[in-house]
Design a protein around this nucleic acid. Sequence first.
RNA 1: GCGAACGUGGCGGAAUUGGCAGACGCGCAUGGUUGAGGGCCAUGUCCUGCAAGGGGUGUGGGUUCGAUUCCCACCGUUCGCACCA
Length: 817
Amino acid sequence: MPKYIPSEIEAKWQKQWQADNIYRAVIDPSQPKFYALTMLPYPSGNLHMGHWYAMTPSDARARYKRMSGYNVLFPMGFDAFGLPAENAAIKRNIHPRSWTYDNIQHMRNQLKSMGTMFDWQREAISCDPEYYRWTQWFFIELYKHGLAYRKYAAVDWCPHCNTTLAREQVVDDERLCERCDTPVTKRELEQWFFRATQYADELLRFDGIDWPEKIITMQTNWIGRSEGAQIFFPTESGDTIEVFTTRPDTLWGATFMVLAPEHPLVAKLTSPEQQPAVTAYAYQASRETDIEREATDKEKTGVFTGGYAINPATGKRIPIWIADYVLMSYGTGAIMAVPSGDSRDFDFARKYGLDVIPVVQPHNETLDGATMAAAYDGAGVMVNSGTLDGLVSNGEKGRKNPAIAAAIDWLVAQGAGAQSVNYRYRDWLISRQRYWGAPIPMVYCPTCGVQPVPDEQLPVTLPDDVEWKPTGESPLKFHPTWKHTTCPCCGAPAERETDTMDTFMCSSWYHLRYLGPQDTTAPFPADEYRYWMPVDSYTGGAEHATMHLLYTRFFHKALRDMGIVSGDEPMLQLRNQGIILSTDGKRMSKSRGNVIDPDEKVRTYGADVVRAYLMFGYRWNEGGPWNDSNISGVVRWLNRLWDVVHDTQAGGGTLSAEQSRALQRKTHQTIQKITRQLETFEFNTVVSSLMELTNAVIETKDGAGSPAFREAICTLLLLTAPVSPHIAEELWALLGRPYSIHQQAWPQADEALAREDELELPVQVNGKLRGKIVVPATADTPSIEQAALQSDAVRFLEGRPAKKVIVVAGRLVNIVG
RNA sequence: GCGAACGUGGCGGAAUUGGCAGACGCGCAUGGUUGAGGGCCAUGUCCUGCAAGGGGUGUGGGUUCGAUUCCCACCGUUCGCACCA
């Protein structure tokens, strides 16, 4: 018998599959389609175990779908623009292009070594000019539809990457750059934005898509929709302060106002005598990092401006303060302070001796502003609120709360405010001051202003001859000629935009480019779109929850409204894998020196083993540490599978009727189980079930000539094919079955064969297991009850009569006595 | 601080969702095997007890004929949010 040497059969079959082009996906209207998508890698140089962990089960599932009769599209590409390429250029003087394409070449081979069914003819690389031509075209379309605009704003800046970042790319309490963990600072710059907030409400709806609750929650929190009212407070200086509040019903208790120290009205409102204190406080606040400012447990501080506003409900003069607990970045940067109803305002009022007037009172209590020990923000009855006294504030948000509804109506009638919705979500900042990205295709003309580059001049390509400055300024800006062009409008000399686009722009539509990566007339062919989209199953990491996964939804909706795509959502189902850790239980990283190299594991064990182990050893959505001793269980399994197929290849021997029946039953039960487990992403039990069937086959190998055995072993190989495609193909060929196993139909379970003939039912007495009975599977409740009462177990009743007998069909019997 | 998820042998993890806890593996133990291979095969392996039995799914309570599963409180781990007006 030949030995199982993975490297030999794996290379052989990969070559064969490629030569026969068996993974080519083309439109076939006669077949139902299935678009399986797994997140594309950044070509950093090497595939790591995380890629294998994410992609292998996705591949197995795509293979299973294909065998189940679907026409499956399972493409792969590279998210190839980005900073590491540029850093390599600065550090080692290698051009980002050659660095990137060398890495792609290497990683493409690595991806092929996994034995995946990617259709490489659909490969898309986001830094190809033919790709980013359409990234630029989309930008212009967005611009033409008013969804891209330029704005001067205080934006997040990473001093290490030397570029601005979108808010989503600033992570953690410490406000670190998502790529390099450098603390982010603020800069005032003119930048391009996408009007993502226009879709805020729609992005909050997840109807018809099957996404993890966790991602939905994160996106919902990120968008941060609050219902309430905007209220205008006149001031004695003549300016109006606009505030947003979710509790307009507490307006009558607003005894002071607080502005963020950076609020534009601060200077005007401040009285001469308060000027020094206000200036000092604002300076102090501006020096503090956002970490310090946002620490929840920090004691509230603030300074009186000397200015006063009028509470539009009570007509009273109320003092205006500045305090750093009010953030310029949220709402209007100003609040009405209601100390009786808000704990932050309460702390502030007590510290500075400001009035506290209760306006919502618990039903069975009378609050006294002078003595109350804490703010009350629960449900209650309105008091001290003029005509609204006696209304019930029921604790609900928005108009569902009668007190809020009445307050909004009152505000509108008085012309003092309006119903309003506020979002935490901000427009997507997409300008990046870097070289290795898609140039923003805009031209600045001294007479015509901002002009998009005409379609026929796309792509605006990156120049090769640039100088790498370790200062990090974009080489495009300093290129001697590149930025000089002519105005597409008047033909006069004009300048190009020198910023490039956020690479998340490229990855917002890559699933569309797979539909026709060679298309030179459109971003994707319409017929391909009609057939393949939307993506049926998308897999990838949860870390993209508020970045890629939100951007791509926005992008799709914007494209839909521009008439470029159809349907409301790009990806119907989303599932997230966990993270594969190193043997020390820590995240793998070059700096820790604990990286597990997949190439090395493939050399040692073979791709089939690594694939099966990654599916077998973990709950896929949780991940866990790599374990070299656990993998040996999978090595043994595939060796035993190899051995038993070779051993029994010639047939010979028969099984008793009983043995045949039992093996058939196991075979068909396994089909049922594995089909269900693949559908539900329970890959660890898929492999357990395969091992069980392998064990059953080995136990009956003396009956290798029997039809039940032949069926079992063929079924076993078919069920193994998605998990370990090479060995399955090799053994399938050994049995003389038609090539390729991956083009065979998925086995169908026969209910009748899967069914048990008789059942061994546990018999409990008072809930404790006391014995077993064997009954025909068809036995009815009375006969099961009879059998249980006649069994040995009843001795545990110790002579008492059975008060009740509970028979659970097919499960157990419990005698209560 | 708020919210969510999770907590099962020495280890990774099962349990058809309220019905035999520990499937499938790893590891370990004992035995076998002159086919030297990352060996393989057989048997055993939650704790306790000679046994019948008793106990056992983070801890304590509850619901139920019956709870790893449902409810309450607490402890722990992970993740998300964090002065959001």
